[in-house]
Computed example of a mutant assay.
Amino acid sequence: MNGLSLFANVGIAETYLKDVDIDIVVANELLKDRAKFYRHLYPSCNMIQGDISDPQIYKEVIECATKEHVEFVIATPPCQGMSIAGDMNPYDERNSLVKYAIDAIVDIEPKYVILENVPQQLTTPIQYKNTEMLIPEYIKQRLGDKYIFNAEQILNTMDYEIPQMRRRAIILMVRSDIGFAWEFPTKSNNIYTLERLFKGIPDLWPLIKEKEYQDFFPENTKDALAFHKWHRPTEHVWRNVECMLYTPTGNTAFDNPVYYPKKANGEKIKGYDTTYHRLFWNKPAATITRYNGIIGSQNNVHPGREWKRDKNGDMMYTNPRVLTIYELLLVMTLPENWNIPDWASNGLIRHVIGEGIPPLLIKKIIEVMPRR
């Protein structure tokens, strides 16, 4: 079955689609570096780079999809205006980009559709025919007489043996003439924890930006650095590393009486208790965001283990750093040998991973798709 990917990022969701007989033959992505990354991963796909709201780009997408007899569409319109990790502005103009995905579905009439976004999409208003309405109501007004929708539309990836707690709004549509509803797979009671996922991965100490602290940690061993190409330490400023050095597994550095998050001038930082936060060993990872390379962003720090006590008797913990790219690949259910282009910067790699959805979840959803 031929497919179209809209707002494609670098094609993370598409990783395992060929395993379930879906061939994405046309894709569209706004940003040049992501489109280039996509072409590297999927050289046989017609990646159309450009703004979907540009009439010429939209026309090219529809013409190519029609020519290729596309019967499947997957779309993840931008969520920055809705996400709790973004602006949370219900009137952000990017929220209305979902209209172009719906226009494409109307024009192409695919048999199957996956619309994926943050849960806030279901409570976000947009304008349609001079009337403000929530996005789900807008979709039903446009497509309700042509498609059958799934009943439950919010899931948590951890319920499907994905090692990440990531709540998503996923609308599944089946064209009415097929006559079946498409629902989520059966949930699993098997929770995939970081203890299980990271078993056997060597500890890794961060790199420190300030020269005077660069010899504080033991050197990363040859075994650790030889473990995997993408298991490499990230560079952090000492004040952020220090506060995480004294933060136990599953805790936030804001709870530390002495080694709490500070500004460069030593003043205590104010912030959410989900930031400067170590992950839990006995749980899946928290949601991976595009800012996964920053200690002070949400739930980004390795769980760590007890290391040793300092001269004052305070316990210090290993791995006071964000997850490596290799660890992110595992958490996102991407292949360990994911074909990352050599030219891609660490920042780009981290951003596109954080903006993706675990592709194993998409595979599992399609495996229960009622095909005809």
Rank of each mutant, 00 (worst) to 15 (best):
57 I>Y: 03
59 K>L: 15
61 V>A: 07
61 V>Q: 02
61 V>S: 04
62 I>D: 09
62 I>A: 08
63 E>S: 12
64 C>V: 03
65 A>V: 13
66 T>E: 09
67 K>H: 10
69 H>A: 08
70 V>S: 01
70 V>N: 02
71 E>G: 13
72 F>P: 01
72 F>H: 03
73 V>E: 04
74 I>R: 06
74 I>T: 06
75 A>R: 03
76 T>Q: 11
76 T>G: 15
78 P>I: 08
79 C>Q: 12
80 Q>D: 09
80 Q>P: 05
82 M>L: 14
82 M>T: 03
82 M>S: 10
83 S>F: 05
86 G>P: 06
86 G>C: 12
89 N>Q: 04
89 N>W: 02
92 D>W: 03
93 E>W: 11
93 E>F: 09
94 R>L: 13
94 R>P: 08
94 R>D: 15
95 N>H: 09
95 N>G: 03
96 S>Y: 14
97 L>A: 06
99 K>D: 07
100 Y>K: 07
100 Y>L: 13
100 Y>I: 00
101 A>W: 01
103 D>P: 00
107 D>W: 03
108 I>F: 05
108 I>D: 01
109 E>H: 07
110 P>R: 06
112 Y>D: 05
112 Y>S: 07
114 I>H: 03
115 L>D: 04
116 E>L: 05
117 N>T: 08
120 Q>P: 00
120 Q>R: 15
121 Q>R: 09
122 L>A: 08
122 L>F: 08
123 T>K: 15
124 T>N: 09
124 T>P: 00
127 Q>R: 15
129 K>P: 00
130 N>E: 13
133 M>T: 04
133 M>D: 05
133 M>C: 03
135 I>C: 09
